[in-house]
Amino acid sequence: MDNINAELWLMVVTLFASVFTNNILLTTFLGMCSFVSVSREVKTAAGLGAAVVFVMTLTTVLNWLAYYYILVPLHLEFFRFILFIIIIAAFVQFVEMVIDRYSPKLYMALGIFLPLITVNCAILGAALFMVIRQYSFIVTIGYGFGAGLGWMMAILAMAGIRQRLTEARVPRGLRGPGITLIIAGMMALAFVGFTGVLK
């Protein structure tokens, strides 16, 4: 019983750590491509963010199961890149079909973002970090959810800032991706302030 309590506590800590101190976007630079290109409006950013949270939580869990119950017993660990990519692609495809069938409204909101997610490095990155850091199953759930949440938070904040920037006079060479990266740098700077809050 104590063991499970400790695990749950570790899960909560990992969740907060992956949102604040180890934000997957601002400290490990994963998912930058869609972060730069889809952060023009808060509404689309929220849609993509929600889709990432959903897909990331479930695929890290699925990948954990596949890695420890299929690859490790067979000593095929080096095969994990292919397996993870296939699981992510298949899962996204599956979710797309289910949502389309049962909730056309949700499909309208999330549908266009789902295919984008397959190539989002953050999803594969989360799965690889999960393997490298040797998380247990319960901690993995917290990690997947937290990493997704952290990514969503970052893109929402960025979209909010960029909406206000439309009227600003930005130097010509810096317009578009340049200024986005500078803002991301400042956000990362703010997040550095969280370092040391959690171990």
Binding site: L26, F29, P171, L174, G178, G185, A188, L189
Partner: peptide, 13 residues
């Protein structure tokens, strides 16, 4: 990490 963002932004600029 922030250094990477700033340097890349300056390069692009």
């Amino acid at each position: 990490p922030p250094g990477a963002f700033f340097t890349l932004a300056c390069m692009i600029w």
